[in-house]
């Protein structure tokens, strides 16, 4: 009981000792010469005992302060025991002569939270003076039409088409080399067929043949096209017996091994067995085309 009481007494003593902040100061970079609508910056500096902070709920809220003054922004900044409030006001006082007005002060609550609970201490930010100035003479020259006293409506801006135009041109300029890269990868015009894209050429030839009406000549030509592709890829005339060795050298085409074997069998039938009908039954042109297409895909990924 006794140590607890002693602790409580120490706490009370500490609370009363820290209840008073050392200083509250309002600093205004300029206190005179404000027109209506001007922004007024003010800095409130509060020096507290260690451990105390400004309670966020006690900060002034942005909004109207008096009929001629708005508070627009409140920012806090803390460095050790020094707390700083950056206040931005906006004055709407339509002055006829230069005069000094009082900006009202406001209360703040300091709080210190420790293991024994929170201690709070109210402080008052003092009012300060602000000098406002007139924007026009007291009695302007007479005008025939009172609307001439007003400033004109003015003009609005136009839309700026330059940024989207620049972006469109830049993207189009980048698309051109991208298209060239794609054309080179697929051996499209203006790039010539080359050994590295031999199957692309064969697949293209077979596709155009598949679109034409069915004929024996077309079928033979299709088989020949795939033969030429295989020859170009192998670097020499490729026969059915060389297929295994070829697939050993180019493992990327191994998934098509069965189709290629059927292709060679059909080719043998068509060109040497004189049995084109049977060959077409074993390996229709559409399948040869699909095989060539698969080979071309594998070729691009190799």
């Amino acid at each position: 009981m006794r140590p607890l009481l002693a602790g409580l007494l120490i706490l009370l003593a500490a609370a009363s000792a820290t209840a008073q902040p050392r200083t509250v100061e309002v600093r205004v970079p300029r206190t005179f010469g404000y027109f209506l609508g001007d922004l007024v910056e003010a800095i409130v500096e509060v020096e507290t005992e260690p451990g105390f902070t400004i309670q966020a709920a006690s900060l002034p809220q942005p909004g109207p302060v008096t009929y001629w003054l708005d508070l627009r922004r409140v920012e806090t900044e803390t460095a050790g025991t020094r707390h700083r409030l950056h206040l931005t006001y906006q004055t709407f006082y339509a002055a006829i002569d230069a005069r000094t007005l009082e900006v009202p002060g406001f209360p703040l609550v300091l709080t210190s939270a420790d293991t024994h609970g929170a201690t709070t201490a109210p402080i008052q930010v003092p009012a300060w003076n602000l000098g406002v100035s007139p924007i026009r003479e007291v009695q302007p020259a007479r005008r025939a039409d009172p609307a001439e006293y007003l400033r004109p409506d003015g003009q609005g801006p136009r839309l700026d088409p330059a940024p989207p135009r620049t972006a469109a041109l830049a993207l189009a300029a980048l698309a051109l080399p991208a298209l060239l890269l794609l054309a080179r990868d697929r051996a499209w015009w203006p790039f010539r067929p080359r050994p590295a894209r031999a199957f692309a050429e064969a697949a293209r030839r077979l596709r155009s043949l598949a679109r034409q009406p069915d004929s024996e000549a077309g079928y033979r030509e299709g088989l020949l096209a795939l033969h030429r592709g295989l020859d170009a890829k192998a670097g020499s005339r490729l026969l059915a017996d060389d297929l295994d060795a070829f697939l050993g050298r180019h493992p990327a085409y191994r998934p098509q091994a069965d189709n290629l074997a059927r292709f060679f069998a059909a080719s043998r039938l068509a060109f040497f067995g004189n049995a084109v009908a049977e060959a077409r039954c074993r390996m229709p042109l559409a399948e040869a085309e699909a095989t060539a297409r698969q080979l071309a895909v594998a070729e691009r990924a190799a």
């Binding site: 993207l171 189009a172 698309a175 794609l182």
Partner: peptide, 22 residues
């Protein structure tokens, strides 16, 4: 191969959008 196909498509789509905004 997929990237090479997607790149010009995306770039042309962007260029078209820019042209429409302009």
């Amino acid at each position: 191969p997929g990237l090479l196909l997607a790149l010009p498509v995306l770039l042309l789509a962007g260029a078209l959008a820019g042209a429409v905004l302009t």
